[in-house]
Simulated assay, not measured.
Amino acid sequence: MTFGSTAVGPSVGQRWRTARWVILALVAITAVSAATALLTGARPGARMDPRSTSPDGALALVSLLRDAGVEVIEADRLADVERNARPDTLVVFTETYLLVDDDALRRLSAIPGDRLVVEPVSRAREALADGLDVGPDTSFGGDPDCDLRAAERAGRTRLDTAVTYVAKGLEIKGADVTRCYGGAVARYTRDGRTVTAVGSGDFMLNADLAKEGNAALAMNLVGSRERVVWYTPTLVEGDSDASASITDLIPDWVTWVVAQLCLAVLLTALWRGRRVGPLVAEDLPVVVRASETVEGRGRLYRSRRARDRAADALRTGALNRLLPRLGMNATTAPSAVARAVADRIGGDPNAHGHRLFGPAPATDAELVTLAHQLDDIERQVSQS
């Protein structure tokens, strides 16, 4: 008896042992891809956000600080700053336009440690850097021109326009203010605390950090302590309804810009409002007799004592009627017209020229006499 051989396929267990390695490999590849995308992908955020990789973020500077051994604590709430700040800590204040509550500013001013205030608005500057006043804007860049070690070691920088700061004078006692880069960076020490104000934070951003000495200046200013609390509020701190209005969020220069625009609009309205535009020709609703028009125009000339205009009108009308009868036109010389009139009706050509082209009469009586003389000349020429 012969038995045929039977083929037996792989069991379920064998199939699972083979497939699980494929599944584990796919899971590992997916996890590595997700981690890579998370670590290297763009992380948007607010301006000066220490976690943002956007051009306006500050992750590059924070990464350099951590590589240099500086402990950087990211804080986006006031409570986080109060919890992590110590006397040996540097607190970096950014986006201060969100600090609208007086109580929040008082709490921040009471926090121990040094301060670096970046682009402070007026309320924040008065609370956190009360030894400084705002000066004129300047071009932030070039040599530091000061004896501040952090700026001297950084050397030349390259940035755009920045706010400058000056000392308040007698209001800041026991403090020696050091101004660098034309006042765009100012520092003073009082009560054992070092306060630094920067009129522009562009040199700390990811986009501008690599320009000239920007990175060195940022590292020297922020890395002056081994522990840094980087405070970038993402929401309005404090009760804005109780102690602040919308004007507290507007920079000081915006008020002057709006005032100038309002003045420009007012002047434009006054300028354009005085113009009545061109005259519009319209048909008269009734027919006015010529005698009435002449009489009305004569009264206007008389009321304004415009004897010169009246004489010019009389002579122009007379010449317009005489020249065609004499075979002449408007380009004919006055002397030739006077001789032609004399040849036609007789008389002295100079007398006729005086009547047709002479000066304006000095009195109303002379104007009436001139009208009669012109009428007489025109009548004689037409009858000759």
Rank of each mutant, 00 (worst) to 15 (best):
N329P: 05
R325M: 08
A311C: 01
G317P: 05
R299H: 14
L323G: 08
N329E: 11
R304E: 10
R302F: 09
L300K: 07
E295Y: 10
T331F: 12
M328T: 11
N329A: 12
R309Y: 00
S291F: 07
R325Q: 11
R305C: 01
N320I: 06
S291T: 10
A310Q: 01
L323N: 13
V294K: 06
L300Q: 13
E295Q: 13
N320Y: 08
R321I: 06
N320K: 11
R307C: 00
L326A: 04
A310S: 03
R304W: 04
G296K: 09
L323K: 13
V294Y: 12
A318W: 04
G298V: 11
A318I: 10
D312E: 12
G327C: 04
L300T: 15
L314I: 01
R325C: 03
T316R: 15
P324D: 08
R297W: 11
L322C: 09
M328S: 08
M328N: 11
L323Q: 09
A313V: 04
Y301P: 01
A311T: 01
A330F: 12
N329T: 14
G296N: 10
R325N: 03
R297Y: 10
M328C: 07
V294H: 12
G298L: 15
S303V: 12
N320H: 12
S303L: 13
A330Q: 14
A306Y: 01
A313H: 05
E295L: 10
T316K: 14
A310I: 00
L319E: 10
G317Q: 10
E295F: 09
R321P: 04
T316P: 04
A306W: 01
A313S: 08
L323E: 08
R307Y: 02
E295A: 14
L300Y: 05
L319T: 06
R304H: 13
R309T: 00
S303R: 15
A311G: 00
A311I: 02
A310L: 02
A318H: 09
L314D: 07
R304L: 14
L300D: 09
A306V: 00
T316V: 07
L323D: 05
R305D: 07
D312H: 05
G296E: 14
R315H: 06
P324M: 07
G327E: 03
A318Y: 09
A318F: 10
R309K: 06
A313F: 01
Y301H: 06
M328L: 15
L326S: 03
G327R: 02
A330N: 14
R305Q: 08
